[in-house]
Amino acid sequence: MTDARFPYGRKGHVPPVMGAPALEARAVCVAYPGASRPALDGVSLCVPVGAHVALVGPNGSGKSTLLKAAANLLPLRSGELRVYGNPPGACHHRVAYLPQRSRIDWRFPITVRGLVTTGRYVHLGWLRRPGPRDDDAVADVLDLLGLSALAERQIGQLSGGQQQRALLARALAQEADLLLLDEPLNAVDAETRAIVADVLAKLRRQGKTVVVATHDLGRLESDFDGALYLTAGREMPPPPGAFVGVPVGQHRA
């Protein structure tokens, strides 16, 4: 499905290993330079293909760190991390990542449609320009996220919730198989919350794998298959009465 003649990155696009889970972590440790304790300390996780899994915990529990490591933005200190059976970063186009706080330059002269189109670039690689198929994919996700009417606006002219939707739209435009979403519902309006819930339901129907970092415990049962509870970089047993679903962490059968 990716037909870049000159793909970005030296590793190119490695095919998934047959039968491998979408995301697998074994005793993963990650430490930020200069930090006194590791941000992730021996966390294990298995997310089967097609599953929707929540990473639940307070700030500083390591949820974001785990997603960043899976997106190949942080090196591991020890342990092993596999994405479709390959090391992180071996198949950029299969993995979409929505950061909690983006480092976007919202004043840059680019339209909402232009920003969402950058989600297609991983499939184009060097020198190729977006074609009709890319334009169609972008138009579809703009529609899905209720951004069609805002498509020609400069990105700085959106509200916070609309900006968050534009970033989710870009992640969807990438047509990835594994979506890593870091607090997608943090500080957004009711309209955005409803749209994000619809998007998650649609992704489930499409058989996409989704890992969401969240502290919004309210709707876990209806939205997710399993949950991993994290505190201070370690897996915790689920709080009494909390949603468990399919076991995904260390103590799975």
């Binding site: 990155g9 190949n72 950029h92 186009h93 480092r103 680019i110 320009r129």
Partner: peptide, 23 residues
């Protein structure tokens, strides 16, 4: 002109560029 895509993406969102393998 040839590298408009890459200049644009690394200017707007260097983090996302890095994720998709564009340094």
């Amino acid at each position: 002109a040839l590298f408009h895509k890459e200049l644009e993406l690394t200017s707007v969102d260097p983090l996302y560029a890095q994720i998709v393998g564009l340094s």
